[in-house]
Design a protein around this nucleic acid. Structure first.
Length: 415
DNA sequence: AGATGATTTCCTGGTT
DNA sequence: TAACCAGGAAATCATC
């Protein structure tokens, strides 16, 4: 399959692009009946157009929309482009984490006093929120915030009403797809398995690709929506629990791409719908991400070369060890992610290693950050004596003599 | 333009 | 078996 798309990308025949785009778009529609196939095709489509979107395929939910918004060229939106990423997603598809971010933005934007709000109030996911009427909202969020949330949600919902899909249309697109693939006569097609590298792509990771990535293209939520209109859209509890901490980063610059989902009727597949035609100029602008290029075979649904979004500049004060230190010395930002084992000695422990890695990834605009990679960077600090080894203890590190700002005295002095 | 620093990514092999 | 640790190698990009 990879060869297939490489070939197509290389030859770049317009008719292939147009045809394949059409098919891929249709394939997304039929993703409920063939999720793996749609994943492949989605990836292929994105690969072909070199849009950077495939990175979205491996986004954690809260990162994903940001990528969308990166394509939004509307300068009016750019100021709040990150905070209102959820505008790109149907509220029906919001996870609890997404919903919390939306609520948080509403509170901030309207200067509400949220001090009386319990976290439990904000742990509902999109489908749950969508089921609530105005009175229920008021009951939960109060007279001040409730109506505002309700109205905002109604506006979002209105924008994202899904079009139903007829069975005959599905059959037609299936047939079209089959014919097209047959005509290509690629022996590799039969061997494709998404998630082929079991153990390489974890189940959890794979699941949330399915759940989130393709929803804005997506399968799971789309299926849910189509079949039941409202269903539970699970969230990653780990990230939900640290969602506030996860809201790192300031607004991101918009790219010249057009806005997503604003005028699109097939709003359930905004990425596909919107990315399909790219100008040469746009392609030239694409950059390779930093680091060794990931092996494509490891994850068919991602292709790092197509990711143009990262801001490579690392301003002072944003080194990894400083990021870690700041989590540790600001307990209000450290929601059980890390803890001091021995503050005086500078010994600390990761409690939620993957969550911290995700936050780091968030900060660096790198959606594929993992604890494994983060820990490699941490180990490089040993040589520079920014960190010291703590043998035999998992997830435990110690600040070294070349680190600063973590000692009690330094903290007391306001660093 | 080339060197350097700070990661990022992949990998193999070992340990818990 | 999964998660973690260790460290080499290669890659990127901003900065010098």
């Amino acid at each position: 399959m990879k060869k297939l798309y490489n070939s197509i990308s290389r030859y770049g025949f317009p008719w292939i692009i147009v045809t394949l785009h059409h098919i891929v778009t249709c394939a997304i529609r039929i993703s409920m009946s063939s999720p793996c196939l749609s994943s492949i095709l989605t990836h292929a489509n994105l690969t072909m157009y070199q849009t950077g979107i495939p990175d979205v395929l491996q986004q954690e939910p809260s990162v994903l929309p940001r990528i969308n918004t990166l394509q939004n060229s509307n300068p009016e939106n750019s100021s709040n482009i990150y905070n209102e990423w959820y505008m790109q997603i149907s509220p029906h598809c919001w996870t609890a984490d997404n919903a919390l971010e939306w609520i948080s933005d509403q509170v901030e934007n309207n200067k509400f006093d949220a001090s009386n709000l319990s976290l439990a109030c904000c742990s509902m996911d999109g489908p749950t929120l969508c089921q609530m009427n105005r009175d229920q909202m008021i009951g939960i969020f109060g007279l001040q915030l409730g109506p505002n949330l309700h109205q905002s949600l109604q506006e979002h919902k209105t924008k994202y009403d899904l079009q139903s899909l007829s069975r005959s249309e599905l059959n037609e697109t299936c047939q079209l797809l089959d014919n097209f693939l047959d005509s290509l006569n690629f022996p590799l097609l039969s061997t494709i398995r998404i998630g082929q590298a079991e153990g390489v792509v974890s189940k959890k990771e794979f699941e949330y690709r399915d759940d989130y990535d393709l929803t804005t293209l997506t399968m799971e939520p789309m299926t849910s929506l189509r079949d039941t209109e409202l269903s539970d859209n699970q969230s990653d509890s780990e990230y939900s629990s640290s969602s506030n901490s996860g809201r790192f980063g300031s607004s991101t610059l918009g790219s010249p791409e057009s806005g997503i989902g604003e005028s699109e009727t097939e709003i359930s597949y905004p990425l596909i719908s919107k990315v399909h035609i790219k100008t040469e100029t746009e392609e030239i602008r694409l950059k390779r991400p930093r680091g060794r290029p990931p092996k494509i075979s490891r994850d068919l649904s991602s292709s790092i070369y197509e990711c143009p979004k990262k801001n490579k500049h690392v301003p002072r004060g944003t080194h990894l060890w400083e990021f870690i230190r700041d989590i540790l010395i600001h307990p209000e930002r450290n929601q059980g992610l890390m803890k001091w084992e021995d503050h005086r000695e500078g010994v600390f422990k990761f409690l939620k290693s993957e969550a911290v890695a995700q936050m780091w990834g968030h900060k660096k605009k790198n959606s594929s950050m993992t604890y494994e990679k983060l820990s490699r960077a941490m180990r490089y600090y040993y040589k520079r004596e920014i960190l010291e080894r703590v043998d035999g203890r998992r997830l435990v590190y110690k600040f070294g003599k070349n680190s600063s700002g973590w000692k009690m005295e330094e903290i007391d002095m306001g660093m």
